[in-house]
Design a protein around this nucleic acid. Structure first.
Length: 294
DNA sequence: TGGTTTAGACC
DNA sequence: CCGTTTCTAAACCA
């Protein structure tokens, strides 16, 4: 659907994607009006989504991915927001920090304690201080709030891990029940790995004890394997440490994946382009974010 | 440096 | 809104 709206497409999830529209449109003003050509492009894409997929979409057009994300969120279910280069910072300034991609509840409340409430506050803050509090994320946050983001839109690569977890209706201290559930999850992920052509080197488990006490354990092998039985055994073994725990949720994860990358199967997953060309585009490119609401 | 664990975020 | 899936970064250790 969006495939022919742009050359570079990154699907974030089933209902969200970034397009690099640099080659299809421009930021030039529509003569005499305070509109950009890109707005027409976006309107076209949006209406095609409506017509061909039958769902409304929120579209944000901006010079970077992070700004496009905020723009598309800005007028949620059915919006179209265009933020031209040079206007990103002032567009973001009045918005609450949570609007910035990468800021969740924890970061937001930490910022609030520092007296930082809007994206504009972040942009005006001392980057050194942000860096001290939040590490690398602080720097990123500062840049984002100022409209600085030169990440190219790249198609999604191979997953780095596969996992499966499931929660109990209410927490159980019956370890055998936990083991039973884990066996199912182990079989599920292992099967999924196989169907996706993934070999794995690490098997991990995760347990959540009420209320939110998360523990993970993992064990790695010297080399990649496809061995469902081993996954099950390893998972159960790792779980034995938690035999006395009260468990609300249990999960099994496979990581350090490698892909045989043999030939076929793979349903519509990736279209024929070989993998691997990171594809860097110019810094004054544009990203637009489409989001569908069902 | 590479392996493991945790935290936080995202949809 | 919660539960699930995947990611990134940081901290620690060997």
């Amino acid at each position: 659907v969006l495939r022919d709206a742009a050359d570079v497409l990154r699907e974030v999830s089933v209902d969200e994607a970034y397009l690099d529209a640099s080659d299809r449109t421009s930021w030039d003003r529509v003569p005499g009006e305070d509109r950009r050509l890109a707005e027409g492009y976006a309107r076209h894409v949006k209406s095609r989504i409506g017509r061909e997929a039958g769902v409304p979409a929120s579209v944000g057009v901006a010079p970077s991915m992070s700004a496009a994300k905020v723009a598309s969120d800005h007028d949620k279910p059915d919006g179209l927001v265009v933020v031209p280069p040079g206007e990103v910072r002032e567009f973001l300034a009045p918005l609450p920090v949570e609007a910035v991609h990468g800021v969740g509840p924890v970061t937001a409340s930490t910022l609030a304690e520092m007296g930082v409430e809007t994206a504009g506050d972040v942009a005006a803050a001392d980057p050194t201080v942000l860096r001290e509090r939040f590490g690398e994320r602080g720097r990123t946050l500062y840049d984002r709030a100022r409209g600085v983001d030169d990440r190219p839109v790249t198609p999604r690569g191979r997953p780095k891990s596969l996992s499966r977890e499931s929660a109990f209706a209410d927490a159980t201290d019956d370890h055998e029940r936990v083991r039973e559930r884990a066996r199912g999850l182990a079989a599920d992920v292992a099967e999924r790995a196989r169907s996706e052509g993934a070999l794995y080197r690490t098997t991990g488990v995760k347990i959540v004890e009420p209320p939110f006490d998360v523990s993970t354990r993992a064990r790695s092998l010297p080399g990649p394997v496809d061995d469902p039985e081993l996954v099950r055994e390893t998972a159960l073994d790792l779980l034995s440490e938690f035999a006395d725990a009260t468990v609300r949720k249990v999960g099994v994860r496979l990581s350090k994946l490698s892909f045989a990358d043999a030939k076929q199967s793979s349903l519509d997953g990736w279209t024929g382009d070989g993998s691997g060309s990171p594809h860097s585009t110019g810094r004054d490119g544009q990203a637009s974010l489409e989001e569908f609401d069902g």
